[in-house]
Amino acid sequence: MSLSLLWIPVTLVAAAAQTARNATQRKLTETIGTVGATQVRFLYGFPFALFALGMLRLVSGEMIPGVSSAFFAYVLAGAVSQILATGLMLSAMRQRSFAVVTAYTKTEPVQVALFGLLLLGDRVTPPIALAIVIATAGVLIMSVKPGTDLKNAGLRPVIFGMASGACFALAAIGFRGAILSLEQGSFVMRATTTLAWGLGLQTAILVLWLGIFDRKALISSFRAWRPSLGAGFFGALASQFWFIGFALTTAANVRTLALVEVLMAQLVSHRFMSHATTKRELVGMGLIIVGVGLLLWAQH
């Protein structure tokens, strides 16, 4: 496979791993709360990231890249944005179905394309822009139910889900910026180095926050180490492949193809959480498939 197209299978693996991580985290919110469940993906993912970096260093013989102030600024911005995005997403999931909230967060590709152009100079061709619009329209059709549904459910989960998407968009741009700022190493080494730094910063920030403001949640996250290991592993696995994708192509390409996660989430909801699929959601999923297909066609 051409290296220029390697980001496609990489992104699909990342989307599958993230669906598994989201489902695991959602269950943890019931026992250790939103902030505690947000923290476990970083705390328990960090050792896996360090292990991956160490093994890559050993197997490839590459040196771990040195970091600059620009790298640190980008990775810190990505780390903080992702913490906010995850917390907002889990808060919304406590009030709405897993698939619907995942769909709300996936309004991010349009924002990723805009932020990528403004902050990194990542240009989007007309066919790719059309693909982003079509796929995002599919997400919105899946998400926005008739007015009575929104009235009964309240606007809070909608707002939290949309805000989560915006923060995920900023996180994607921050991490891609960090990867591009590294001057040495293969794309895999630069991606893995950025992942280790990102998860390390996120772990430090959340452990400090919980230690000061919510020690009960911090202690609970340590006690729930068995299920948390699963969330940490799938979180680190997903992030590893997201970052490799960011090293290979624009964040807009990666996050648009990542909309297949909505389809995976719908399958999880239908199979394990007894959420029925409506005709409207089928139309939305069809548009996502069309948009993703156009995106892949535009790569040739």
Rank of each mutant, 00 (worst) to 15 (best):
L5A: 09
L6G: 05
W7M: 11
I8P: 11
I8R: 10
V10H: 03
V10W: 08
V13I: 14
V13N: 06
V13R: 07
A14E: 04
A15N: 04
A16L: 11
A17F: 15
A20K: 01
N22W: 08
A23D: 04
R26G: 05
T29G: 10
E30G: 14
I32K: 01
G33H: 04
A37C: 09
Q39M: 11
V40I: 13
V40C: 03
F42I: 00
A49V: 04
L50C: 12
F51A: 12
A52P: 01
M55F: 13
V59L: 12
I64Y: 13
G66P: 04
G66F: 13
V67D: 12
V67H: 13
F71H: 02
F72W: 15
F72V: 14
A77P: 02
A79S: 14
G87T: 14
M89F: 13
M89V: 13
S97P: 05
A99Y: 02
K106H: 15
P109H: 05
P109V: 10
Q111L: 15
V112Q: 02
V112D: 01
L114C: 03
L118G: 11
L118R: 09
L120A: 05
P126F: 07
I134Y: 04
T136F: 10
S143P: 01
D149E: 13
K151I: 10
N152I: 06
G154V: 03
V158P: 00
F160C: 09
G161W: 00
G161E: 04
M162R: 02
M162C: 13
C167V: 05
L170K: 03
A171P: 01
A171H: 07
A172G: 11
G174Q: 01
G174A: 02
A178R: 03
A178W: 04
A178Q: 02
S186Y: 10
M189S: 07
M189E: 04
T192D: 09
T193L: 06
T194K: 10
W197I: 02
L199Q: 07
L201H: 07
Q202I: 02
L210P: 04
I212Q: 08
D214Q: 08
K216I: 05
A217D: 11
S221Y: 00
F222M: 15
A224N: 15
A231E: 01
F233N: 02
F233M: 07
F234Q: 02
F241G: 05
F246H: 03
F246W: 05
F246A: 05
T249E: 09
T249S: 11
T250N: 07
V254R: 02
A265L: 12
Q266G: 15
L267D: 08
V268C: 06
F272A: 13
A276F: 14
T278I: 07
T278S: 15
E281F: 12
G286N: 14
G286L: 10
G286E: 14
G286C: 09
I289Q: 06
G293E: 08
L296E: 00
W297K: 12
W297T: 07
A298D: 10
Q299A: 13
H300L: 15
